[in-house]
């Protein structure tokens, strides 16, 4: 609890927003790269070394016809824009909304990770990268503070 308080003191809302922007951008580029690959329709061969084709061509790679990579890119873009909006306008509700949304990201990541481990039984580095960025966003998001209205 003490360490939590310590971290909480160091992480001002502004710092959190900057972290959100950087991690959000990273996640956005990762997901966008996968989404571009999906729409280009390249046929990735099945390789012993990387399981990406296995994961990215599985029936779980789309959700009601929309590639999940595109949904992921939209999610990260939202985090990125909301955090920038907070930095730019100081409107705290923007940051709090972004922090709330990170719960969605981490839940989706747990689901996709479980699919890779138990169902598809193959791993894709880019998808694991997205799970990492979503987890960082979620953890950092827990430190967003409600400051007194100016």
């Amino acid at each position: 609890m003490e360490t939590w308080n310590k971290i909480s003191k160091t992480l001002s809302n502004k710092t959190i927003a900057v972290i959100f922007v950087f991690i959000g951008l990273l996640g956005f580029l990762d997901a966008a790269y996968l989404a571009i690959g999906h729409y280009r329709g390249a046929l990735p061969p099945c390789s012993i070394v990387h399981g990406c084709s296995q994961v990215l061509t599985s029936q779980y790679s789309t959700f009601v016809g929309v590639p999940v990579a595109l949904l992921g890119a939209g999610y990260y873009l939202f985090i990125l824009v909301a955090s920038l909006a907070y930095l730019e306008s100081k409107s705290e509700s923007m940051l709090r909304l972004a922090a709330k949304m990170t719960i969605l990201g981490v839940l989706a990541s747990i689901y996709f990770l479980a699919l890779q481990i138990f169902v598809i039984r193959a791993y894709c580095l880019y998808c694991l990268g997205s799970a990492a960025t979503a987890t960082i966003l979620f953890i950092v998001g827990r430190f967003v503070k409600k400051t007194a209205a100016p």
Partner: peptide, 30 residues
């Protein structure tokens, strides 16, 4: 403010464009 957001949008657009170029470079698959 408008300028800031336009710059952000252009920067993101350029990055996505760069990614698309990166992915389309012909390279040996195997």
């Amino acid at each position: 403010r408008l300028g800031t957001w336009v710059a952000v949008a252009v920067a993101l657009g350029l990055m996505v464009w760069g990614l698309a170029l990166l992915g389309s470079k012909p390279r040996a698959v195997t």
